[in-house]
Design a protein around this nucleic acid. Structure first.
Lengths: 147, 147
DNA sequence: CAAGCACTTTACGTTAACGTAACCCTGGGC
DNA sequence: GCCCAGGGTTACGTTAACGTAAAGTGCTTG
């Protein structure tokens, strides 16, 4: 280890322009390259190219992460794209577009609220089912006739 | 049919074994009859019949409700069926089945946890995007050149 | 230089979850 | 008696989100 202050490492790291190959990203997120290419085809990603090969920057990785998160929450790729693209177009977005974006966001937000409620309810159901299952299981493991 | 007053119907309602036609359920849940029939075909519902006509009891309605909730949370019909059917088979379930059920439940639970985290994160993203959008919007509404 | 690996494109295949269309049956109201 | 709304079955169509296979490109390693 060079006798350099760790701090100097740190403050150089931020601009370390790290890039990723498609296979790397695929492994990171437990998906296939095909999926990543598909997302690009659907307008969710737009990586640079060196020749034919795709080169992903940090921002692409973040975008992919957000996309997958959206998917886990049940949003369609089209919905995700809608938000992501408007977000990108924000700087030069006109008022109408921005208001539309706010509408969409409010919509997603409402969706999340409903999901939270659903999760709470579902959680209770699972508790119920589980405790009942444990009861039956216990009764099976104690000889019948006891009480 | 005995000449009964409608009002007397009402105050007996609690144990009035209320039933539903397929169209009623469809309207209640904002889905189509086709969807309900499809769920039956997939083994998620098993309503009684009077002739050919399906008659849904309260338990069927609850089951449908749970199914739809599961769907909103991104579970597949197959996953939902897995839990629902095992739940029904619980009384005579053997230990192995019950343990399998507990596994599945733990799985779902983990899923819900991840979703909660996703929602929290997504919520922040939305906050970010929204506040930025509002900023841009505001800057558009004040004459440029001011500061 | 051959082999192998990771990347590429093109294109057809697949699955889940319904939609839609065509046709039939039945009970109630006019 | 006729009509029509609401129920039924059968069967083919559709959409999203990839999977999979074929065939080519490019580096690097023994």
């Amino acid at each position: 280890m060079p006798p350099r202050s760790p701090a100097s490492d740190i403050h150089r790291l931020p601009r370390q322009r790290r890039t990723y190959a498609i296979g790397e990203l695929a492994r990171m997120f437990q998906i296939t390259p095909r999926t990543i290419r598909f997302y690009e085809q659907e307008g969710l990603l737009a990586p640079e190219r060196r020749g034919q090969t795709r080169i992903y920057q940090e921002k692409d990785r973040v975008r992919l992460k957000l996309t997958l998160r959206g998917k886990r929450l049940g949003f369609s790729l089209a919905e995700i794209r809608e938000v992501v693209m408007m977000y990108d177009a924000m700087p030069d977005g006109n008022a109408r577009q921005l208001k539309r974006l706010l509408e969409i966001l409010a919509d997603k937000r409402a969706n999340l609220e409903r999901q939270l409620e659903d999760i709470r309810l579902m959680h209770r159901e699972l508790d119920d089912v589980e405790s009942q299952a444990r009861d039956v299981l216990a009764s099976l493991e104690t000889p019948p006739g006891e009480h």
